[in-house]
Design a protein around this nucleic acid. Structure first.
Lengths: 344, 344
DNA sequence: ATGAAAGCGCTAACAT
DNA sequence: ATGTTAGCGCTTTCAT
C-alpha cells in the first residue's frame, strides 16, 4: 500500500482529484465513499482505487459545514487528575459510540475562565450536544449554554432549566450512609473534611450536617478541597486543633481521603485503629488502597448522560430528566470500631 | 444581556444576519469580529452590538474550511485512568495555550482498532499536528500518520521516521536506578513485574535485565501489565511461586505498583519490612501513598512535546528531535533494607 | 446510474 | 474604511 506524503508544496487531494482520476463526477465519488447503493460496482471500484492511490482523506470541516451536522458531542471534564472522571467517561464513550457519535474532550482545569473558553470553542465547533462532567460555571452561564445546545450536567441535579438534563448521585443519602457506618462502629467525634466552596462540596457538607443531627451528634467541619493536597492539609488541621481529637473523618471525596490517609501516616496515627476514614465517590483505585467509601455507579452515570443527551438531540422539546443514581457504602479497611467506645 | 434561544425552527444567526442588522457588509463584520484595526469605531460598535443582540456565534467549521487552518492540535492518550497521562497533559495544555493552539483530546482505551479510528477522526478534522501520549499502533501506522501530519510521540524514542519527533525518559537508566537503589539496600532477589507485551514494557524489562546483570544478579520476571489489577496479579504470582520468595519488586509502572502493594497487604507481607516495592513514572499520587518510584518530569515532557510539535508545524522540514528527559529515583517508604541481609 | 449546479458560513483579494 | 466577489471541500437537489 502506498504512503503518499504531503509536503507543504503539494495540496491534499480532494474529492475533485479523486473524481478526475476515477473518471467520474464529484457527486458520484461522494456517494461511493459513503457506501450509497446507487453506485455501480465498476464505478465503486474505480473510485475506491483512485482514493486509495491518492491517499485521499475526507475533510470533515467541509462536510460538517454543508451537512449542518457534526455527529459530535462535546464533553467537559472538571479535572483530568481525578480518576473518578475517567470512569464516568468510560460510560460516556461507550454510549456515544453505540449511537455513532464522536466525542471531543476538553478540560478547564477547574478554572472558570478556562472552562468558559473551552466550552465556547466547542460551541463554535458546532458540537451537537454538551456533557458537563462537573464544572465551575455560574447558573446563568449554564442556562445560556443549555439554551443554545442540548446539555447534560453530571454530578449534581440542576433543575428548572429548559433543554437541560442531569445525572447525579444523592449526596444527602451518601453522607448519611457514611455517617451511619461510622456511628454503627461506635464513633461520635466524626469530623467532615469539606470539598471547599463549590456546589457539590456544599451538598455533601449539608448531607453530613443532617446526618450528624439525626444521630444527635455535633458536626465538626474542617474546610478542604477535592485534591489529595487539600485532604492532607485539612486532615492535619482536624487532628491538630485544640478540640478533642476526632476518631473518624468523613471526607468530601476519594482523592482528599487519600491525602487524609497520608496525613495520618505522617502523624503516626494508625488507620483504622486510631482514626477511621471514609471517602466519597467510589473510584476503583480505592479498592487497591483498601479505603472505605461512599460509591456511585460512575460508568453508569456517564452512560446515562450520553443517552439522555442523544435523546434530547433527537427530540429537543422533551421534558427535562433529572436522574439520580443509587449510592452505596463500600466498607473496607480504613474504617473500624472506635477505640474509645470499647474500653480495653 | 439577552439570551437568545434557538429552537429547531429558528436558524442560527450568521455573519450575514449580523451584517444586515448592523447595516454593513459581511466582510466588515468579519474584520470587526477579529479586531482588525481597519474598522471605524462607529462600525465596530454597531457590529458588536448587533452580534450580541442576535447571540451570534462564529462557525469554526466554516472558518477552518476557508482558512485551511484549524489552529488545533490533536492529542491521543493511551489511558485516561492512569494519572500519569493527566500530568503529561498539563504540560501539553500549557504550551499549546501559550502558542494559541487549541487541543482536542481523544483516547483509544489502549485498543489498537479504537486508537486508529480516533486518530483518523482527528486527521479528518484537519488537526495541524498530533501528539501521541503512548499508543498501541504499529510502526507502519505511525509512519503513515507522520507522513500526513506533524507528529510527536511521547514516552519512547521513535527514530528514523521523517516529520516525527519524540520525547521520552531513559528506561534503561531508570531501571538501573531502581535496581541500584534496591541493591544498595542489600536486596538480591529482586523480581521485575513487567508491563506486558508492548514497547515501553519491553524497554523497561530490558533495562531491568541489564541492571541485574551489572550486579551479577539473576533476573526474575513475572509478566504483568500497566494497571493496578495486573500489578496485583503479578505480585501474587511473584510471591506465591515455588522459587525462593523475592525480597523486592521493581514494577513496570506506578499503577501496577499500587496493585502490588494491595497484594502484599492481602498476603500479610509487610512493606517494606518483608518486601520492598519500587514503581516507575513518578506520578504525584505516589507521594501521598509514600511509594518509592523512578520519576520522570511528566509535565515537562508534555510541554516539550507541544513545543516540538508547534515548531514543526511552522517548519515542516526541520530534522527530527528525540528528546530524552532526566530520570531520577525518588526514595520513599515502600523500599527499605533487606531483612535477610542484616541478620537480627 | 451519473452529472451539473447550487450553496453551507466564512475569509481574503481586490476594488473603491 | 467599506463593499464585491470568488471560493474553501463537500453534500444535495434536480436533471438526464
Amino acid at each position: 500500500m502506498p504512503t503518499p506524503s504531503f509536503e507543504p508544496t503539494r495540496r491534499r487531494p480532494t474529492l475533485h482529484d479523486v473524481a478526475a482520476r476515477a473518471g467520474v463526477s464529484k457527486s458520484l465519488v461522494s456517494l461511493a465513499l459513503r457506501n450509497s447503493p446507487k453506485v455501480s460496482a465498476a464505478s465503486r471500484v474505480a473510485i475506491l482505487t483512485a482514493a486509495e492511490e491518492l491517499g485521499y482523506r475526507p475533510n470533515r470541516t467541509a462536510s460538517s459545514l454543508v451537512q449542518q451536522r457534526t455527529h459530535t458531542i462535546g464533553v467537559h471534564i472538571l479535572d483530568l487528575h481525578n480518576p473518578v472522571f475517567a470512569e464516568i467517561l468510560d460510560g460516556v464513550h461507550e454510549a456515544a459510540r453505540h449511537h455513532e457519535y464522536s466525542t471531543v474532550l476538553v478540560t478547564g482545569n477547574a478554572d472558570r475562565q478556562t472552562e468558559k473558553r473551552e466550552i465556547t470553542r466547542l460551541l463554535e465547533s458546532r458540537v451537537e450536544g454538551l456533557i458537563l462532567i462537573a464544572h465551575r460555571l455560574s447558573d446563568e452561564d449554564v442556562a445560556e449554554i443549555a439554551a443554545e445546545v442540548p446539555t447534560v450536567v453530571v454530578t449534581w441535579p440542576m433543575e428548572g432549566i429548559a433543554q437541560l438534563d442531569s445525572v447525579s448521585g444523592d449526596d444527602a443519602l451518601g453522607m448519611r450512609l457514611g455517617v451511619d457506618h461510622l456511628v454503627a462502629l461506635g464513633h461520635e467525634r466524626i469530623t467532615h473534611l469539606s470539598g471547599g466552596d463549590n456546589r457539590i462540596a456544599h451538598a455533601r457538607q449539608a448531607g453530613y450536617e443532617v446526618a450528624m443531627a439525626a444521630h444527635g451528634l455535633a458536626p465538626r467541619i474542617v474546610s478542604g478541597g477535592f485534591t489529595e493536597a487539600a485532604g492532607y492539609t485539612a486532615a492535619r488541621e482536624a487532628v491538630g486543633s485544640s478540640a478533642p481529637r476526632p476518631t473518624a473523618l468523613v471526607v468530601a471525596n476519594d482523592l482528599a481521603a487519600i491525602g487524609a490517609l497520608a496525613a495520618m501516616r505522617e502523624l503516626g496515627v494508625d488507620v483504622p485503629g486510631g482514626m477511621s476514614i471514609v471517602g466519597y465517590d467510589g473510584m476503583r483505585l480505592l479498592e487497591s488502597l483498601d479505603v472505605t467509601t461512599v460509591a456511585q455507579p460512575l460508568a453508569d452515570m456517564g452512560r446515562q448522560a450520553a443517552d439522555l443527551l442523544i435523546q434530547r438531540i433527537n427530540q429537543p422539546g422533551r421534558p427535562s430528566v433529572h436522574s439520580r443514581v443509587a449510592t452505596g457504602l463500600v466498607a473496607r479497611g480504613s474504617s473500624g470500631p472506635c477505640a474509645l467506645a470499647s474500653p480495653l
